[in-house]
Design a protein around this nucleic acid. Sequence first.
DNA 1: TCAAAAGTGTTAAGTTTACACCCATGA
DNA 2: TCATGGGTGTAAACTTAACACTTTTGA
Lengths: 226, 226
Amino acid sequence: MEKLYYVDYPKFLVVTDCVVFCFKDNQLNVLLVKRDFEPSKGAWCLPSAFVNENESIDHTVQRALAAKTGLEDIFIEQVRCFGDVDRDPNARIISIMYYALINIHHYDEKLNKRNNTKWFPVKELPTLMYDQNEMVEVAIKRMRYRTMEKPVGLRMLPHLFTISQLHKLVEAIEDKPRDKRNFRKVVEEAYYIEKTEKIDKSSSKRGAALYRFNQRLYDHYLKHKL
Amino acid sequence: MEKLYYVDYPKFLVVTDCVVFCFKDNQLNVLLVKRDFEPSKGAWCLPSAFVNENESIDHTVQRALAAKTGLEDIFIEQVRCFGDVDRDPNARIISIMYYALINIHHYDEKLNKRNNTKWFPVKELPTLMYDQNEMVEVAIKRMRYRTMEKPVGLRMLPHLFTISQLHKLVEAIEDKPRDKRNFRKVVEEAYYIEKTEKIDKSSSKRGAALYRFNQRLYDHYLKHKL
DNA sequence: TCAAAAGTGTTAAGTTTACACCCATGA
DNA sequence: TCATGGGTGTAAACTTAACACTTTTGA
C-alpha cells in the first residue's frame, strides 16, 4: 500500500521516552534506567523503546513500561515530540515523550536490580542522556497542570488514602506548601472523593480516616458541571 | 553513524500537520488545502509536509507554511504527535501536529487560487482527511489555553489594534462573550499593552484609541511576577 | 504523660461578575 | 440629527488565603 504513494520520502527511527512518576518518601520520584549497551553505556536515561511496525505509539510506551515495571495498562499521557536533528548525536531519532503515573505499592523493588533501574527524587536527578533532562522538566509541568485540572494524581496513591497523604502528594506535585485546613476543605467538597468507614493506623496513633476516589461520581460531576 | 547502533529498528514516514489560525470577520479561521494529488485527491486537509533528512520538525512546519502562505518565521507551537497505526489508511505515517497564528493582513489572498487553499471559519469546517478534524479540535483547545496564559493571540491582530478588536478576538478564541467594561479594565491593567497616541478611524466615526504590545515591558513583567 | 499526627471555623483580602448610560463624529 | 461604535465606575457575589488550638492514643 504505502509504496504506491509515498515511496520517495525519507523515513526515521522513532522512539518513545517516558517520564515515570511515583510518590515515594513524600516526594515525586522518576524511574531511570542505566543503559547497559552502547552508545552511552552507563548513562542514566528514561525508559524508552523503538516504535515497531504495526504498533501505535501509545502501545510502544506501554510495552517499554511493562518491560521495566512489570505493570500493564499504566496511566500515560503524551506530552510532545522532540525532533531536532542532533538531539541524539548517534543517529537521527525522533522521540515522542510521555509521562506515566504509577502507584509505587504496585511496583516490585526487586525489579531494580534485574532491570538496571532506580527511582530518583525529582529534586535529585542525575544528568541524563541528551535532551532528557529537558524532557523531565517539560513532563513535570504538564503533569502538574493535568493533576490540577483532573484528579489523575490519585493514581500515585493507594486505593484507600488519608487526607494527609493526598496533602503531601499535592504539595510534592505543586512544589509548594498548602494550608492544612484549606486543603481539607477542598477535599471534603470534592464530592467524588468519598470518606470510607476505614481508619488508617499506620501513620499515627490516633488513626486517620481513609478516603477513596469514586469514578462514577466523578463522571457524573463532569457531565453536570456547567 | 546511525548504522553503527540502530540498524535493526524500523523506520517511519513522518509528517507535520499544522492548524493555521487567523482572525477574520470577527471569527477564528483555519487555512485548509484542497489536495490535488492522490491519495484522497480533492479532500480538504491541513497544510502538511514530510520531514526531510537533516531537518528539524519545527523547520518542516515552517517550510510547509512558507509554501502555502508565503510567510516566514510564523509563530508555531507543537501540540502533539498522532501515531495510531491506521490513522492514514494508505501508509503508516506518524504525524506531528502544530498550530500556527498568523496576521491575516500579512496574507495575500491571491495565494488561495495558486495554492488550492481557503480560509474556513472554525465553526464551519468541512470534513477533513483522516483524523484531521480531531487535530483541529485539539489545536483549538491548546491555542485557547495558551492565549489565556500568554499574550500570543495578539499575533492575529495588526501591530496597532483597538480594544474592540482585541475584545472580539478574545471572544472568538474563548467562544463566549465578555463584558465590555470588565474587558477594558483587564486590558488597561495589562501594563505590557500600551496605549498609543494614534486613533483608528476606520471602524467608527468617533475613532478608537490604538494600543500596541510592548515586548520589553512583557519580558520585564515575566521576570518580576512572583 | 507526652509526642505526633488528626481534626476543626472564621475572617479578611482579593477577584470576578453584573450592570446602564453618555460621548464624539460622519453621514 | 441620528445611528454607530467608543468610552466610563461601582457594588455584590464569590473565591482564596491566613490563621491556632484541641483531640486521640500508643509508646
